[in-house]
Simulated scan of single mutants.
Amino acid sequence: MAAPIAERGIPLAAAIELLERDVVRPGGTTASGAHLAYIPGGGIYHSALGDYLAAVSNKYAGIFFTGPGPVRMENMLVRWVADLVGYPASAGGHIASGGSIATLAAIVTARDAHGLKGGDYASAVVYLTTQAHHCIEKALRIAGLAEAQVRRVPTDERFRMRPEALEQAIAADRERGLRPWLIAAAAGTTDTGAVDPLDAIATIA
């Protein structure tokens, strides 16, 4: 795998052997039922088949006109998930490629919904815990919010955000003339699976 890509290809059997030897076998086996680390799921046959069908049909689902079927499928799935978690009929959304892109979309949405402009960024405050995924701070930088203040709210013995500590941090920032803007609570963190007390945090927000 360290060799440069050649101008001439290799036989399919040799390519599959190379893939198995140098790509599939080395490293962690995230498709194994014994793999419990991180987020990637196992190599489920039905999911692989779905990926295959999506790849070979190659439908563009960015707009309804070019791919009405895929767009309808996405809308159906979003509606199903919204109903599953108890969101109202007015709720909407879209399917992202992963958590990092979903987080970026959420941060940009929050920025625009609250009318934050360039001059507001340095005084805007984000609240999260030490258990928060690194993609949150990455998304802040990509969204132009690198100047925003980031507060690490203390957690309890189960690594959940402490609502009273959050409330105190918000009050202190308001006294400083800052603008509490975003609370990044978690419904299952990557490292420990901690679920923050979302109802209490929503009440504070």
Rank of each mutant, 00 (worst) to 15 (best):
H46W: 04
S32W: 03
A148P: 03
G62N: 01
K59I: 03
G193P: 02
C135F: 04
Y127P: 00
N75S: 13
E7T: 14
D120Y: 00
L166T: 07
I142Q: 13
F65L: 09
G62L: 00
G144S: 09
V56Q: 10
L128F: 01
S97Y: 04
A2M: 10
R8E: 14
A110F: 10
H134G: 09
V71T: 03
P163H: 04
T189L: 01
I44A: 14
G28Q: 12
V23T: 07
D191N: 11
S47G: 10
P197E: 03
A82E: 01
E17H: 11
K59L: 08
D22F: 09
R141F: 07
R152D: 02
R158G: 13
G92T: 13
R141H: 11
A37T: 06
E175T: 11
Y121R: 09
A105P: 00
M161R: 09
I142H: 13
T30W: 14
F64Q: 06
G42I: 07
R174K: 15
K59R: 10
P180Y: 02
A172Q: 14
T30V: 08
A34K: 14
T109L: 07
T103P: 04
I95F: 05
A143L: 01
A171N: 06
V108M: 09
I101A: 12
A184N: 05
S100M: 04
T30A: 13
I44M: 11
G62E: 00
N75C: 06
